[in-house]
Design a protein around this nucleic acid. Structure first.
Lengths: 200, 200
DNA sequence: CATCATAACTGATTGCAGTCAGAATCTTTT
DNA sequence: AAAAGATTCTGACTGCAATCAGTTATGATG
């Protein structure tokens, strides 16, 4: 292999290019039509690959959604982490982390809810699923950090409380009861609950 | 119509009989093989009805599971409500309500998790879905009642706290991370969280 | 009882996610 | 540079949930 041309073989480069096309195709189609209205066939066609090839890159359609959304959620988390720094109160800091995630999740409500569904009920063996759970873990870590500002919250309780906040977030975003709620209303719903949770 | 024979027409009786056969068939097959391993065709065959007929009684396979499981969950709740009466401490009373539900849910873990999935992500228009949510509401009411024994818990907070406990329960039972956990371990996981939740 | 109207039933069919046996492409070896 | 070996690709195919146009059973009416 020529050192001048490329350090990785054609195979690797082809795979990479295909994955990029798949992500781009799925991303666009999901965003425009919603995950339920898009067929895997359409994605394969748009990415210019065979039907079967798609499933070499994502074992299920759900995995494909995780693949597309994980990056966006990670970004929302980063935003929230930054926002939380600039906010004084504990409750407000927690909500500063929560808000961008809710916003991201509700950009397209069907996709957002399906993403949450895959997260909890998807195949834990799959790498994109683990990646999603890793983001959740990071989110809880960020929330725990915010909670520790309150000196009444002990070291150990912070992690548990953060996990509870995470559960509350999940259900407020996921439940069909809240389908009609706006981003702000979902955030308020979460705020109301976190408020009761915090030491008084 | 002869008053002596029956107060409801043959139609109603036939429908009732069919629904009974469907529930019996689905119940047995789900319990034995798990919801994912059973086809709607098998259920229709066992209930001795046409393929299409099944979907007149339950719009989706998920609805069929709700139909079968709702009754069992209502029973578990009743059990827990009774148990909670006989237990002194607040935390223990809450867990007395939680335990039978977890037991019921884990009788067949795949079915239990799928049931939870349908509950949160299923079609809210469907009657069996509403029925499931009604049981959840009753569960939260029972938990709220237990929480109110603690005089530090205000009237309004009780309902919110109960809702949070419900969210914690849901995720502990549903998440793939906890798949390998026994009933007792799931209950302990919930206990640990509720403990942090209660006023200290 | 015969006729009509309506509700309930049915299985052949559809649409889609996901599979798999063989073809194509890339890499290594001689 | 040819052959052998390994990996990746592909679209025809499978299996299943769900549908729907046509059929049958029930109840109402004269």
């Amino acid at each position: 292999m020529s050192v001048a041309s490329q350090s990785v073989g054609r195979r690797e480069r082809n795979k990479r290019a295909k994955l990029d096309r798949i992500v781009a195709a799925a991303s666009e189609l999901f965003a425009e039509h919603g995950v339920d209205e898009v067929t895997t066939q359409q994605i394969a066609d748009k990415a210019d690959i065979g039907t079967g090839t798609l499933f070499l890159y994502a074992k299920t359609k759900g995995e494909l959604l995780l693949l597309v959304q994980n990056a966006k959620y990670a970004e929302a988390l980063e935003q929230g982490r930054a926002d939380a720094e600039t906010v004084p109160g504990v409750l407000d800091a927690v909500l500063a982390i929560v808000r961008p995630i809710v916003e991201c999740n509700r950009t397209q409500i069907d996709n957002g809810r399906t993403y949450l569904r895959e997260m909890v009920f998807g195949d834990p063996e799959e790498p994109r699923h683990s990646a999603a759970l890793a983001i959740v873990a990071q989110t809880e870590e960020a929330i725990a950090a915010a909670l520790r500002r309150d000196e009444r919250v002990t070291e150990g309780d912070a992690a548990t409380l953060a996990h509870i906040v995470s559960a509350v977030m999940f259900l407020s975003m996921a439940t069909s009861v809240n389908i009609a709620l706006s981003v702000e209303e979902v955030v308020q719903d979460i705020r109301r609950q976190v408020d009761v949770l915090l030491p008084r």
